[in-house]
Design a binder for these strands. Structure first.
Length: 577
RNA sequence: GGCCCCGUCGUCCAGUGGUCUAGGACGCCGGCCUUUCAAGCCGGAAACGCCGGUUCGAACCCGGUCGGGGCUGCCA
């Protein structure tokens, strides 16, 4: 088969989709300049009205009110998406900035991993979606490091996280290593700022010091539990004033917190189920809630796109935002990703390190494609598509609400699609390090020439690069190890000795030793012994490659060469007595 | 226990009141091709959790129920 025909075929069959994707991209491009989001054109303070985030519309930009928004039809999936530029135009008209009215806003999103371990694929998917969202809107994608847990944060994890994102192609416009106008982007570099915010909150009465012991707190939780109330119902400002200990945020009890999640729609929390949470530890460091919220505000984040595990923390972040002041971001909570057992992924469950996938020889483009399908889809029936197509079509409001299971089998299939779509030379170049590490040694140029002859056959049979190494192992070892099951199933049968013997004679007498000659020789062997190809060639396959599963035999023998092939046959004859 | 989120084939998605005898993909099963294995091609099995309600009509809207998940830390 023509190498790569598979994917090319799929791609070329999609001209219509490409056109659509292009028109979507153009629609974005046609947005008035101030909406397009040139980095740096950020204005704070007016884009969103405090407490009314559900009313803010960013033109051409899937904000707001999720499923209940009647406008959704104009920007929704399927046909709606195809009509996107029309809908977008309507919106622009309706929402065009009025003279002296709303300010300009650029999409600014971030991924904020905490370097206390490796990122699991759930976080990677969150990074991907943030990145695609930013790229779709010509916005800014920021990499922040949430290392307020000084006890557990480690530089090594941060390095590995960054390496993983780079491998995946998720380039960040601002953040650690690359800087930006809103830096620093590492929380440990912003301790003074958090201290300042805490002082301000205590000063304004939004927060208070609390020196109660864990026992006291535990008793309050027990009490609430017994009364079938929310466990933190009684975690409120105590009568006695403290000047040390932790700092808690004082949650106003007069109003529920309600917000419109871009993915989930309206979500409401009654005030009494939100505890007076700790914002500052007694060791002088901010908690996640405080640091993250402060950063989002200071960094002018417009959309907080994160895992659903943070959904129930969101009212705290909203309350904090209001108390600190500034422009509240919109929230979008992604469904969680589960392991094959249906249990959520975590730092010790399921695939964690991108490095593993890289080492096994997954292609970043395939990985992106697969990951984008977890909680989103380009349309009803297209599963293989380029990242550009995905970016052009990506809408937050199209993101699914249900959890997804990470399916390695499908990932492997998809990676195989991408591998087969590679040009022969790309394949050889990219597979090379995997072959060498699989073999445990460098290959000589002569050996590479041999590999290159086999490459197309190996490429077609590889789901990932590291399994290519296994397929050609027989070429680069002197003594093949015979696979036990293969040997007993194939070699311990009548007639095998004849097959090996006659084959040896025929191959030995060849003038040319190439694919066609080998094939002719072996076919004449089959004729001479009056035996079918299916039966007659398997013993040779095992003798040559050590296994009943291998790349095509004639090519394998031709590339192995006469001397080594004959040696393997005679070795088997010896072994068979 | 309390609060919040979610519920379409085994898995990932499509589906936004009639065109759904529910569509695509992976996987699975069968067949073709065939020197093995892949790939490719053809075919097949496979799902709207359940109960009510609204409606002429519901996978789609509402309620309940059951099930799954998250949070409930001086982790994030």
């Amino acid at each position: 088969m023509d190498q790569g025909q598979g994917l090319r075929h799929v791609l070329s069959a999609r001209t219509g989709d490409r056109d659509r994707a292009r028109s979507a991209r153009e629609a974005v491009d046609r947005l008035p300049g101030q909406w397009r989001g040139a980095p740096g054109r950020v204005h704070l303070g007016h884009g969103l009205r405090r407490g009314r985030i559900d009313r803010v519309h960013l033109p051409g930009h899937d904000v707001v009110a999720g499923r209940r928004d009647p406008d959704r039809h104009a920007l929704g999936r399927g046909a709606g998406r195809a009509r996107r530029h029309d809908g977008g135009r309507d919106r622009r008209h309706r929402n065009a900035p009025q003279p002296g009215g709303e300010e300009v806003m650029t999409v600014r999103v971030r991924i904020a991993p905490s370097p206390t371990g490796l990122v699991h694929v759930g976080n990677v998917r969150a990074a991907l979606f943030n990145w695609m969202f930013a790229r779709h809107h010509g916005g800014v994608f920021i990499l922040r490091i949430d290392d307020t847990d000084i006890e557990r944060s480690e530089q090594q994890y941060e390095d590995e996280i960054k390496a993983g994102f780079r491998w995946l192609g998720l380039d960040w416009d601002e953040g650690v290593d690359v800087g930006g106008a809103y830096g620093p982007y590492r929380q440990s570099d912003r301790m003074d700022r958090y201290r300042q915010v805490v002082d301000q909150l205590v000063e304004s009465g939004h927060a208070y010091y609390d020196d109660r012991s864990t026992e006291e707190l535990e008793a309050l939780r027990q009490k609430a539990q017994h009364e079938k109330r929310h466990p933190n119902h009684y975690i409120r400002r105590p009568d006695r004033e403290a000047t040390s200990g932790v700092v808690r945020f004082s949650v106003p009890q007069d109003a529920a917190v309600e917000f419109d999640d871009v993915i989930r729609g309206n979500v409401r929390f009654e005030a009494d189920v939100i505890d007076d949470f700790v914002i500052y530890r007694s060791n002088g460091t901010p908690t996640y809630h405080l640091a993250s919220t402060t950063d989002d505000l200071d960094h002018a984040i417009t959309h907080v796109i994160r895992g659903e595990d943070l959904l129930s923390s969101t009212p705290k972040h909203i309350l904090l935002s209001r108390a600190i002041g500034g422009t509240e971001p919109l929230y979008a909570h992604l469904p969680l990703i589960m392991g094959p057992d249906g249990k959520p992924l975590s730092k010790r469950h399921g695939p964690t390190s991108l490095k593993e996938f890289r080492d096994r020889g997954f292609l970043p483009e395939a990985f992106r494609n697969y990951l984008s399908l977890l909680g989103w889809s380009l349309d009803g029936d297209q599963t293989v598509f380029t990242t550009e197509e995905a970016i052009a079509a990506f809408e937050l409001s199209d993101v699914s609400k249900n959890p997804a299971v990470f399916d390695t089998t499908k990932l492997e299939w998809m990676n195989g699609e991408y591998i087969r779509a590679l040009s022969e030379s790309d394949f050889i170049e990219r597979v090379r390090p995997h072959v060498e590490s699989g073999l445990g040694r460098r290959l000589t140029e002569a050996e590479w020439a041999q590999f290159s002859q086999m490459a197309p056959l190996v490429q077609e049979r590889s789901k990932f690069f590291s399994d290519a190494a296994e397929q050609v192992r027989f070429l680069f070892t002197d003594e093949v190890d015979y696979d036990e099951a293969s040997w007993s199933k194939v070699m311990e049968k009548d007639g095998v000795v004849d097959v090996l013997r006659v084959s040896s004679e025929k191959l030995a007498g060849l003038e040319q030793f190439d694919h066609d000659a080998v094939e002719a020789a072996l076919r004449s062997m089959l004729e001479a012994l009056e035996i079918g190809a299916r039966k007659g060639l398997q013993p040779l396959r095992v003798a040559i490659t050590g296994s009943q599963v291998s790349p095509p035999l004639f090519e394998s023998i031709a590339v192995l060469g006469r001397e080594r092939s004959l040696a393997r046959l005679s070795r088997c004859l010896d072994r068979l007595g």
